[in-house]
Design a protein around this nucleic acid. Structure first.
Lengths: 108, 108
DNA sequence: GACATTCATAACCATCTGGTTATGAGATAG
DNA sequence: CTATCTCATAACCAGATGGTTATGAATGTC
């Protein structure tokens, strides 16, 4: 399974219902579709569709057990997001350093 | 200026064109709308609309100067995103600790 | 075997979204 | 003053998105 594109990640997390599902799985661990539907405020098919999207983004994993499917969070999948924010900050710091150097040079 | 909701943040970053604009501003600092449009592959009005959305999410700031507007990144706005990922990971670690504790207790 | 439960998929629909072109307001140049 | 340049906004459109109900496949229960 190749690392899913960051675009899928951002898109998956852009929807509040999906974030709520993911948060819940992060907090309370493995849950069946039924359990997730109970607290979601949307229909079971909607939940299934959201779980499908989270899965394609690598954020979630499904384990079939009898007639129910247990889903769990895969927080490793958040790594690209952390990398990205880190990269943005490093860009900024780099520019800040440049400014600092410039000022130092101007000081002389 | 109240901290914009995390939902606006996620939504703003969900679009590749907007991420590209933000990344560019992070890397190369302040840019005019014209300069941004040049490398964006979309029309100027599209760029303006995206900048508007980034602005409402707090990710970007516009400085009017004559007939052009200079935009710059506000990477502080990424803080809620970092917080969120951190929170998800802490949830996970907490559950991991619980499991560890359980195993320890079972050992006795 | 007959029935019930759990989930995924299909079909559908209203709304949102990301793009376009057209236009206009404000600033600068001649 | 007129013409030009830069950007924002309006109006519009095709396609994506998030929800719904209906259905069916697989599993478990009696």
């Amino acid at each position: 399974m190749p690392e899913p594109s960051p675009d899928l990640l951002f898109k998956a997390l852009a929807d509040p219902s999906r974030r709520a599902l993911f948060e819940r799985l992060c907090q309370h661990g493995e849950q069946t579709v039924g359990a997730l539907t109970a607290g979601a405020g949307i229909s079971q098919p909607a939940v299934s569709k959201h779980l499908g999207i989270l899965k394609r983004a690598g954020l979630v994993q499904g384990r079939g057990a009898g007639r129910q499917t247990h889903y769990s969070a895969q927080q490793r999948a958040l790594a690209p997001l952390v990398d990205w924010t880190g990269r943005m900050n490093r860009f900024w710091e780099a520019r800040f350093d440049d400014l600092e150097n410039l000022l130092k040079r101007m000081d002389q």
